[in-house]
Amino acid sequence: MDTTALQAQNVRVTYDGHEALKGVTLDIPRNQITALIGASGSGKSTFLRTLNRMHDVTPSAAMSGSITFNGHNILDKDTDVIELRTKIGMVFQHPVPFPKSTFDNVAYGLRIQGERAPRSRGVVKLLGKRMIDWKKLEASTDRMESTVVQSLKDAALWDEVKERLHLSALRLSGGQKQRLCIARMIAVRPDVLLLDEPCSALDPISTRKIEDLLMKLKEKYTIVIVTHNMQQAKRIADYTGFFHMGELVEFDATKKIFEEAEKQLTRNYVKGYFG
């Protein structure tokens, strides 16, 4: 099996003429956690967003180069971006649940693709309000319902929310919201998970939970995580790429980057000389 999930070649991004990313070439290994580190504005987030064509949303952005995924160049004009994003998912720095119930949040990606909600299976009416009986839901064989349950379990959130699936997701705590976003992302069954500084708005305990979660998820998914927290990269990443001023300076196994990097710049950064 091919060990590379994504192959980026000479990827360049400009905003209104200003070069934010200068010709990055990088192979993202499959079923590993790759961390992208670097100072603010070094281009690591910009690079991450090329992987799911998020820059399409910004009119002033222009991309060039190629990113090969499943044999196709996703930067090509006739790539179906909608479908691409169901295969390469993204979670952002600020957890953003939709103003819907927890269940509906996780089911969102599936509904978008046309999956229909089953009729009242697992859903009971209590005092006129729709409640969700989690036991029925867990036992359900309906595709949408079982996907939702599995995603919440994979995101280590099921036990905490199973009694409250019908309540608004906006009431969850920060750490729970972010795990919800992760559950929402994997419900769509992507191949690659992109995470843009997912823990920077969270407390250390929630951060730890998510890091443990990611370590488990890499069995099923390829994970790329942008982080400005070097310790995090050291803790969980198999591979690390160091970005500086829009360029990829060095990319290697994490241990190598942090202990005996080849470039002086990398060594200076990981030692904390600048940041």
């Binding site: 909608i82 479908e83 295969k87 599936l110 978008i112 693709q113 046309g114 769509v188």
Partner: peptide
Amino acid sequence: MNTIRTHARHRGH
């Protein structure tokens, strides 16, 4: 692992 049904995707577009 493609979960999109083709006609649903077309309908979305």
